[in-house]
């Protein structure tokens, strides 16, 4: 082997630029020329390629509760100045009483139409 050791080093130093497609044509040609003849550098390049490939699969999404969690944080820390409307409104609507009132209303409607109607509509002369 006549290739000086620091040639391998210099070729390997340009691997990132080579893989990023950032090498000028003459440098690229030199690297490829060396790679064609050097198994050691070829192996290192393959390993680097594999490493970068695995990194590409490391994307994760924020959890589904991400936005409401932030909104709650801002709500608390702004002493309710921001992102309060929804929570406040939600807390203020008395759903239990609303449903109770609805039942009473329906019952009253039923009683009025079925039983109370004839007496209430007949006018007294």
């Amino acid at each position: 082997m006549t290739t000086p050791t620091d040639t391998h080093g210099r070729v390997q130093d340009s691997f990132s630029a080579y893989l990023d497609g950032e090498l000028a044509a003459p440098d690229k040609a030199l690297v490829e020329q060396h790679l064609a003849a050097c198994l050691q550098c070829r192996t290192h390049l393959e390993q680097l390629r594999r490493t970068l490939g695995s990194l590409g699969s490391l994307k994760r999404k924020a959890p589904p509760t991400f936005l409401p969690d932030i909104q709650r944080q801002i709500f608390t820390r702004s002493s309710g100045r921001f992102f309060g409307q929804r929570w406040r409104l939600f807390g203020k609507i008395p759903f239990e009483w609303l449903s109770m009132a609805m039942i009473v209303a329906m019952l009253a409607y039923y009683i009025l139409t079925q039983h109370g109607a004839p007496t209430s509509v007949s006018p007294t002369p």
């Binding site: 999404k61 991400f66 936005l67 909104q71």
Partner: peptide, 19 residues
């Protein structure tokens, strides 16, 4: 401080920031 605008920013960039 428009809340809808803030929600949009979180939707647009939340994943990138989280990752």
């Amino acid at each position: 401080r428009e809340e809808a605008a803030f929600n949009e920013v979180v939707r647009l960039h939340g994943d990138k920031v989280f990752n």
